[in-house]
Design a protein around this nucleic acid. Sequence first.
DNA 1: CTTGCGTATCTTTTT
DNA 2: GATACGCAAG
Length: 739
Amino acid sequence: MPVSAAAPQPDYLTRLNPEQREAVEALDGPLLVLAGAGTGKTRVLTTRFAHLIMTQRAFPGQVLSVTFTNKAAREMRERVAAIIQRPVEGLWLGTFHALCARMLRRHAELVGLTSAFTILDTDDQMRLLKQVMDAAGIDAKRWPAPGLMAQVQRWKDRGITPARVTPAEDTDYAGGRARALYAAYQERLKDLNCADFGDLMLHMVEILRDHPEVLADWHRRFRYILVDEYQDTNLVQYLWLRLLAQGHRNICCVGDDDQSIYSWRGAEIENILRFEKDFPNAKVVRLESNYRSTRPILAAASGLIAHNSGRLGKTLRAGRNDADGEKVRVVALWDSEEEARMVGERIEAAQRSGHPLAEIAILVRAGFQTRAFEERLITLGVPYRVVGGLKFYERAEIRDAMAYLRVLAQPSDDLAFERIVNTPKRGLGDTALRKMHEIARAERIPLALAAGKLVQGGGLAGKARMALSELLHGFARWREQLGREGHVVTAATLLDESGYTEMWKQDKSPEAPGRLENLKEFVRALGEFESLNGFLEHVALVMENDENSQGDRLSLMTLHAAKGLEFDMVFLPGWEEGLFPHSRAMEEGGEKGLEEERRLAYVGLTRARKQAIVSCAANRRMYGNWSSSIPSRFLDELPIEHIQREGSAGMARNRVVDMPSVFTGASGLTARKPRSIESAAWEVQARPARSSALRVGDRVFHQKFGYGRVTGVEENRVDVAFEKSDPKRVLDSFLELVS
DNA sequence: CTTGCGTATCTTTTT
DNA sequence: GATACGCAAG
C-alpha cells in the first residue's frame, strides 16, 4: 500500500520500474527482493532508504543497513547522501563486521573484553592459535594449525561458542581435542583483549541472545533493517539479523540465490531459500528486468542456470531497448597459449576500433590462469590491472608499521609486540622471546612488561639486553610524543627511530623502494584520521587497494572478484572439466559444489553488457606439465541458438592430426563422465585451407618472435620483418595469420 | 640467527 | 614449474 498515494509522486519514485517500485514502497513487514543480475538492486536499496526518510517513517539513524564489503557500503553511503541531500552522519550503514564492532564496543564487558579491544587479522589469529596448540602440547606436524583454524572459523560462522560444540562435532581433529583448543584460544583472546573477525559477530549474537535488555535497546533504535547480498550471509549473520529484526519485523533483504558463490567461506544459500519460512507473511518481489546485457547474453546465462535445481526461480528479461546483440562466442583452442593469443588479438582489435580497455575484462576461475594472460598482454603492450592481488594492508611493511602503532596504542598487544620486537633484526631471537614469554606467563602480564622486567633482571646477554632496553625506551618516548605532537608526526618518528625505515633503505632487493613508498603512503593515510585508535579500527576493518587503478586499463581477475562488476566485453577462458567446474569443488561439494560452480559461470556471463567470449583449450600447462582436458559441461548447457562456436585457425591448419577426439567429433576415451559427448564435439570451423597460405604483406604472429609482416615467401619458408625482433626466415607452420 | 636444501603442494577470499 | 615451508647445518 503506497504511503504517498495521494501526494504528488516524488521523482525518485517515478524513475523506477513497477517491480522496483513495489520493492521500495513495501515498507512494512519482512520483504525479500530477489534481484537478478543487473536488475537495479542497489538502486532499490538506496531508494528504499531514501523513501523511509522522506515518508518520515524513520530518522536516518533508525535504519540499519548492512553490506558485505566496504566497497558496497561506501557506494551505498554516497548514493543515499545524494538522494536525501543532507549529511549522512550518524548512519548505521556498514559491513556486518564494522557494525558489529561498533555495537560490541558498547557491550564489550559482557563478554569479558574492554571497549578498547583490538581486532586481529588472519595472521595474528594463526600465530595465536599456534601458541595455544603449542601450550597444549599438540604435535604440530600431525595436526596442522590451519586445519583447526578452519574448524574454529566454521564454528564461529555458525554461531557456535566452545560451550555449544557438541561431542559429535569434535571427533575429527587432534583426537577430539578441537573443542578444548577452541576454548583455550577464546580464553587467550580474552586475556589479550582481542577479538578476531568471527568474534565480532559471535560475541554480538551471544550478547543479544543472553541479555534481553540490551536487545530491547537495539530494537528501540532500529526500526528498519536493510540487507544487501543476503545470499552470502552465514548462519551467525543470519542469527544476528533475526534477533535485531524481532523488534519491528521490518527487514528487507535483497539478494540473488543464483549468485551465491561463497559457500566455501560459510555462506548458506539456505538462508535466502528459507526466508519466507523464517519470516512468516513475508512479501517477495522479483526484479527480472535486466538493464545491463543484450538478449543473447541473458538467454545464454538463463539457459545455463536453469540446470540448477533448488532455485527460487527467476527469469531475466531484457530491459533495454537496444538489447539485440551478438551471440555469445564459444571458441575452442588447441592449448592455453593459443587461448591467450586469441584473447590478446581480440582485445587489440577491440582497442583499434575504439573500445576503451576499461570496458574489457578477462575473468578466470583460478588465480594461476592470470599469468598466461599477463605475459601475453605485456608482449602486446596492453595496459592491464590484476584485481585482487596483494592488498595494501597485507604487505609486510604495512603490517609491520601497523604492529608498531598497535604496541604504541596498546602496550598489552602481545601479538603486535612479538611481530616487531626483532624487526628490524636486533639480535632478539627465539631465546630472548622465550624468556619474555616465561616471565609473562608466570606473572600473567603482557609481553612488553615482561620484556622490561627481563632487561632489569639481567637474564639476557649484553647485546640483546641493550637492544631490548633501547626499544622499550623508544616506546616510552614515542608514547609521550604521541600526546604532545599527535599521531602522524609520532608515527614518522617511530618508524625512523626504531630503525624500521633504515632496514628497507639497506635492503637491496628490487621491492625495497616500493616498500618505502608504501610506508610514506601509510603515514599520509594516518593523517586522514583524527586519532591513532580511529585509524587502527579503520585499517583492521577496511582493506582497500587503490593503486594502479587509474588510466584506461584492461581488468584481469577471478570470477569471484568480478561479482557486482560489469563490462562491455568479457572473456571467460578455461571452460574445461576439472578447471571449471573445478574438480576440487566437485570432490568436496558433490552436486552442490557443481551447482555453485554453475552459479559462478552464471555470474561470469552476466558481467557482460555487449559481448561474451567463452573459450576452452584442449591442452593446458598445469603445475609444470601439459595435460589435456575436455570442454566444460557448462558449454553444453548453453542454449545452442544463442551461441556461436568457433575454432581457431591454428588448430584447423596444422594440428588436426594431434587433436583430441573430442574436438573432432569421434567418440573419446577422455570423457570421464557418462554424458553425451556428441554435443560437446562441435566441428572446428576450419578456415579455407591455404596450402601456401601466406603472402607478402600479411600480418603474422610467431610464438617466439611476436608480430611481424611477411616480406617474402618461398614454398613453406617465409621471410618476416618482426616488430620486436630482427627479420628472420622461418617455417610457414610456425606462423599464424593475423587478420 | 641466517642460509641452503629437500619436500610437499598447487581454487575461490572478505571482514 | 614455482613457491613456500620446515629442518638441518653453518
